[in-house]
Design a protein around this nucleic acid. Structure first.
Lengths: 348, 348
DNA sequence: CTGAAAGCGCTTACAG
DNA sequence: CTGAAAGCGCTTACAG
């Protein structure tokens, strides 16, 4: 038998209504407050969450929905969101599309049936419309790392890194070091993020009068949300690109997963980096600066993305839609390391 | 207004009790079943979890408690546990001690107040007794990566990797390559895991007649549950060890976090690996095999650990304590790579 | 400010 | 197998 609000009422001689008022920080007489607090402590009373939820319809739960929990990449995002909401007394549940491949709709329905007060989600790609189902259920949603393609009809709060700027950082660095024969590994259909990175990268070259038409190959016919496939794809593409008649002097890996694949191919082929080919990557890893050579890259501030997303979501939960739909862009950081060869020295 | 069991009762002309029986897979007339299913589909009815929980006291929630969610290392463990329990229709919440440093007791109380049906936890160290509070609340607990020091008084289900065997793997490999002057980076007070790894390592040397007294330095006076501190410590210890009058020919990093620190120090000092010092690490990373040189190590099967833990926990939740307290040891895998120099060739 | 009473959406003996 | 009714532990108008 558990201690309930009734026990506290009986012990204090007050009504359950008054105890409830105390619990909900409403005004009650000071002497009653003291009495209630003493009794709660003595009986070690703790409110029953389910009963509260049943009455108020507020679950005090938020859900993080990712494409794949298994990839290490998003850990610090989950960490910062969880940290934020725990402090605000919310429970955080993490879900993933990957648990039910091909049954995304079921994942979303399960999620909705848990009645979270809010959702932070990472869509598959910018054609992923599942966020609308959550919105239709009356649950606020913050979208990370993507801008839905039909954003204008179905607006939502979105947060991304400065993908365009990050791509430009890497392009400028390569250009300064004399690289003009580039391969971009890899693009994907419907990926807002990747397209922005590539656009930022290409624009720098275009602005400097270079022809970028050879940088990109046609879209690969692969799904881009299975990390294993993407890593494998990065590996293949690296090999393919390096064995072409006119191999590039530098390769731009457009994200973490494809970069890992490319790196392992570079290693397997024992192509010395950066002597035979220079590498840059969008996304960082704790080991990138430890590797030999260390990898020049751009890192995302996942902690800040998580915090901004949490902050906006909490405002929506509290009914503040004053700036809806918001569009937040978080700065990236360029890390100059040792995976790019300076070709300008050779030529002088 | 939401659809409730009452609506289904009214529409079908049955009682709420019968609808409830259908929902709980009890026997009802076939024709009623068909009727109910049709109506549920038509009205898009979904049971209210909170009401169910309030009545049954079963939350259908399990909690994963880690020391630090921010470290990438445990991602695949979380993934496999979440995967398992989602399939069994449980909600998974992840919590971390790190959100309330110094207030572990509060984290535990919060966790208990959520009334999870079960908990999978990674203790700080083997002196961490918080699992007992959860057990006292009547909640089954499975402990990962540790054996509590007062296990005999307060038994619990425990799962660890074969830490002893993994340490022995690494020692055998170093010994075969002629390394007898070793530094172990790093030990920690009250870490069952680390002590087992070190014991397995030392035993191989002892069995082969070597004096291992110089392998270890005194316990460092640092807490071992803050990954940043541990990484920093690994860095410091690497420098210290390498600048000693008799530097070792090989270093054994006893876990992932300390290994990352050691690796970055090795890189910063530009000590060529393995020419000037050989390295082995307990724990793996996707990049260890990509690095140059690739890092010889032992990897834990986190997926299997997660699955075993989930399976045992679910049995306990179902009341099956036939093999309590269980003790599961999961095999590790040795990865021979290129960070160990063969000294036997030089001498011949 | 306080209390009596209704009700949130379910499940569960119990009687039929 | 089915249904009437009580009750899980809270919160919330409402009246005082």
């Amino acid at each position: 038998m558990n201690i309930t609000i009734k026990d506290i009422a009986r012990e204090t001689g007050l009504s359950t209504a008054t105890i409830s008022k105390y619990l909900n920080h409403k005004k009650i007489l000071e002497e009653n407050r003291v009495l209630i607090e003493e009794t709660i402590r003595r009986l070690d009373y703790r409110p029953n969450r389910s009963a509260q939820i049943l009455r108020t319809k507020k679950t005090h739960t938020i859900a993080i929905l990712l494409t794949d929990l298994g990839t290490y990449f998003w850990a610090s995002l989950i960490n910062s969101v969880t940290h934020y909401f725990i402090q605000h007394n919310y429970t955080v549940i993490t879900c993933s599309y990957s648990f039910n491949p091909g049954k995304e709709i079921k994942v979303i329905q399960d999620l909705i049936s848990q009645n979270p007060d809010g959702v932070i989600m990472l869509p598959h790609n910018n054609a992923d419309d599942y966020y609308q189902l959550i919105q239709e259920a009356g649950i606020p949603v913050v979208i990370l790392d993507s801008i839905p393609s039909n954003f204008s009809e179905h607006p939502a709060d979105c947060i991304t890194s400065d993908n365009y700027g990050g791509g430009a950082f890497l392009a400028r660095h390569l250009l300064e070091n004399g690289h003009t024969n580039i391969a971009i590994v890899e693009r994907s259909i419907n990926s807002y993020t990747l397209e922005e990175r590539i656009r930022g990268f290409m624009d720098v070259y275009k602005e400097n009068g270079y022809d970028t038409s050879s940088f990109l190959t046609p879209y690969p016919a692969i799904p881009f949300n299975d990390s294993q496939t993407v890593t494998e794809r990065g590996k293949q593409r690296f090999r393919q690109v390096m064995s072409s008649p006119h191999p590039p002097t530098a390769i731009f890996f457009t994200n973490y997963t494809v970069g890992i694949g490319g790196l392992s191919a570079a290693y397997a082929l024992t192509k010395p980096v950066p002597e035979s080919v220079s590498l840059v990557c969008f996304d960082d890893d704790p080991l990138f600066k430890v590797m030999n050579p260390s990898l020049t890259c751009v890192s995302q501030n996942l902690k800040e993305i998580g915090e901004k997303a949490s902050e906006i979501l909490l405002r929506r939960i509290h009914g503040d839609y004053s700036d809806f739909p918001s569009r937040t862009i978080v700065d990236v950081i360029f890390h100059k390391r040792n995976s790019v060869k300076d070709l300008t020295r050779e030529n002088s």
